[in-house]
Computed example of a mutant assay.
Amino acid sequence: MRSIRYERFGEPSDVLFLEEREKPRPGPGEALVRLRLRSINPADLLQVRGLYGQLPQLPATAGMEGVGVVEELGEGVGEGTGPAVGSRVMPLGSPAWQEYACVKAAALLPIPDAMPDRVAAQAFVNPVTAWLMTVEELKLKQGGTVLVTAAGSALGRIVIQLSRRLGFKVIGTVRRAAQADELMALGAHAVVSTADEDLRGRVLELTGGRGADGAIEAVGGAVGAAAASALAPGGTMLVYGLMSGEPIPVPVSDMIFKSLRIRGFWLADWARTAPEDVRRAVISEVFGLLAQGEIDLPVSAVYDLADIRDAVVAAESSGRPGKVLLGG
């Protein structure tokens, strides 16, 4: 089988390569999944660079998210105790950038029939993160306002779509003013270009001087600092990305006198620590919205596994209309 591997950490386009490996066989309690499509997420590329919070032992197979079909069941997995052969699933906790994966049956998420493969391949990382940050962590209410930096990202676009359903307002930031019309059409309340507008001033203007109830931040540096300064007293900023690689300089006085809360959010930590019933309820809710078409997850391009180096370059290009996927 074909597999995308790396033997050292570094730039993905330099260190990733295609390798032929022996097709695995499922052990007790496992299922063999034939993967169809896989997503390329920023977290995947951070891991390959050696900058992620959880790093594999090298050499390693890359990728964290994909969709496939159960091809074979291991001992102890059968009727009523696991997925059926032929069913579509998302394997959690197993490298996805390969043709086959053996996964514990309990770690397979069933994919609703109404959800296309192109959606299923990217149905967990960004959609679940967006739901958790807006609903569970910030607890945004009808009429509330959230500031989303890098709003043109896949996650930012999902938050905007959730806002239409749940009734909160999104003020998004972009680096290129050309993206503003697209995000407004998607449902954003307002879009601020950080290249030529005062972010804090615009947020205060848009919120009647109060500031945003919460912020979802992925950039860092000056943009992250401006986002924090645009929060209302008692507001919370969730930091989930590090696009600029720069720390966020926040005045201590704002932390004290505005009672701001600034903390990180990591989906892997939630998946590891949340009670099983909570995890299943959240995933079921999000997958239901995706299956019903309430959230659109566009695809920019699909590359074969053999074209991995071109694929990772495309995945980090600016202005993409959707996710880059790996097929084959």
Score class of each variant (00 low, 15 high):
303 Y>A: 04
64 M>T: 10
193 S>T: 15
68 G>N: 03
86 G>N: 07
157 R>Q: 14
72 E>V: 05
257 F>Y: 14
275 P>A: 13
203 V>Y: 06
59 P>E: 04
49 R>M: 15
233 P>L: 08
188 A>V: 01
126 N>E: 07
118 R>T: 12
111 I>A: 10
237 M>V: 14
122 Q>P: 08
214 G>F: 14
30 E>K: 01
78 G>T: 10
232 A>R: 13
123 A>H: 06
77 V>H: 00
234 G>M: 14
104 K>F: 09
213 D>K: 07
60 A>Q: 03
21 R>S: 07
215 A>R: 08
35 L>K: 03
27 G>I: 01
60 A>L: 11
322 G>M: 05
160 I>P: 01
36 R>W: 03
158 I>P: 00
223 V>Q: 07
107 A>S: 15
123 A>L: 05
319 G>S: 09
226 A>N: 09
205 E>W: 06
55 L>Y: 04
12 P>V: 15
287 F>P: 00
169 K>C: 09
185 A>M: 04
130 A>N: 00
7 E>K: 12
274 A>G: 13
74 G>R: 00
279 R>W: 10
201 G>D: 12
129 T>I: 11
310 D>W: 08
286 V>A: 01
276 E>F: 12
107 A>L: 14
24 P>G: 06
91 P>I: 08
112 P>T: 10
17 F>N: 09
226 A>I: 06
234 G>K: 13
128 V>I: 15
243 M>D: 02
270 W>A: 12
89 V>I: 14
43 A>E: 07
55 L>V: 13
255 M>N: 09
